[in-house]
Computed example of a mutant assay.
Amino acid sequence: MSHIAEFAARLDEAARTATATQQIDPESVMSLEQAYRIQAANIAHRVERGEKLVGVKMGFTSRAKMIQMGIDDVIWGRLTSDMRVEEGTALKLSDYVHPRVEPEIAFLLKAPLAGDVNASEALAAVEAVAPALEIIDSRYKDFKFSLPDVIADNASSSGFVIGNWHAPDTDLSNLGMVMSFDGKVQHVGSSAAILGNPVRALVAAARLAAEAGIPLQAGAIVMAGAATAAEWLVPGTYVRLDIQNLGSIGFHVQE
């Protein structure tokens, strides 16, 4: 078995069983291309079990995070059908290793989108936009990981919640966003924190997905990236996100 297949199988098992695993690249010597190959093989295991690819998620969409990680571009991961958490339902912390949550905005495509497109072209392919929450979960022991580790681990993506869809011409450039636990505010931010405008994350998604040979298709969901820092999930709480002009969504957290 190649290292790509070996690492992919290990990460898939860690996610499937909610069991922490050792880093695969503690010295950060692996190329990003190799890390994405592991990610693809990792997700292929899920597809083989019957899950369907439904979209992509963007990561490191703040300039500060890029600088911190020493990169000059966003990263991305893949969304599958089994990762979707219905709004208002409950998720079990025991299904995750190090679960956290981030406030985001989601796009739903009505037409294929691929390659180098501008903001207007990207928006022309959008059917609707919605408030969204992403559950992220590093599968590595002691919560230690390098950048290639993160990418191989599907950019830490584990679940996503999407609220009501809104018209695609909704101005997303500077919407206030408040994430709270049981009514207590955890983070306050703006959609402008997502690359200055979430539409830029959509443009990046089109480029990166095409480069990977999986251009975005009609019906795909694109999670634009976090507007604030992630927050650790706490059992027995209700997580809620309110976004100006887009409404609110939430989910319950169980042990």
Rank of each mutant, 00 (worst) to 15 (best):
A205T: 07
R200D: 07
Q34M: 07
M83Y: 06
D153M: 02
H252V: 08
V188C: 03
H3A: 12
A44I: 00
A18F: 03
P198T: 01
A18Q: 05
A230G: 15
V74H: 00
T21F: 02
R78D: 08
T61H: 06
G59T: 03
D149V: 02
S81A: 14
M69G: 01
W76F: 15
L93D: 04
A119G: 01
Q217T: 09
I71V: 15
A204S: 12
Q244E: 15
A15W: 04
V54H: 10
W165I: 08
K110N: 13
M69N: 07
T228D: 10
S28C: 13
F145L: 14
P131H: 06
A124T: 05
I162S: 11
F60Y: 12
H252N: 13
T228L: 07
I243P: 11
Y96G: 05
Y238G: 13
V117A: 12
D169T: 04
P148T: 04
R16H: 13
A106M: 08
V54F: 02
K144R: 15
A210C: 02
F145S: 07
T170A: 03
A212W: 01
R16S: 14
K52C: 00
V185I: 15
L208S: 12
P112F: 07
L113E: 04
L53P: 12
V222H: 00
F143L: 15
G159I: 10
R100P: 04
K52L: 03
A229I: 11
K110Y: 09
L32V: 09
N197F: 09
M179Y: 02
V126R: 02
A14M: 03
L175E: 09
V253H: 01
I43A: 00
L113D: 01
D153T: 00
A220T: 14
A204V: 00
G189Y: 14
D116E: 15
I243N: 10
S156I: 14
F7H: 08
N118T: 02
L208T: 09
I162K: 07
I71E: 09
F143S: 07
A212D: 13
L195N: 13
V188Q: 09
V188W: 00
